[in-house]
Amino acid sequence: MKKLLLTTLTVFAFSAQADYLGSSHNWNDGSSDPFKAALAAAESGYAANLKAHMAWRDTGKMIKEAKKLQASGNTASALALANKAHTQTVNAAEQTVGASSAGPRF
């Protein structure tokens, strides 16, 4: 089980995260405030995940927490967390693709 989980996670990490984020998602575009831009990307991504019923468990909490960090002046951690939340929403969007036609392997 653990092995299965690790394999799944690794495969997932390589196939989805790596390629996906690198070039195509520049969430800093068009804003001089990197936190604002990251937060906006995370929030719109999360809204789309919720609409597709494919949201991850902790994304909402991460967004809330990032806002708190920002408000308390901890800007570096706030930005890092907002980016992490956004990454989650991109991976969830990736899962959404094809989810509605998923079926068994047999």
Partner: peptide, 8 residues
């Protein structure tokens, strides 16, 4: 059958 969540 769809994969979901952080554990995919």
């Amino acid at each position: 059958y769809a994969k979901r969540g952080q554990f995919n």
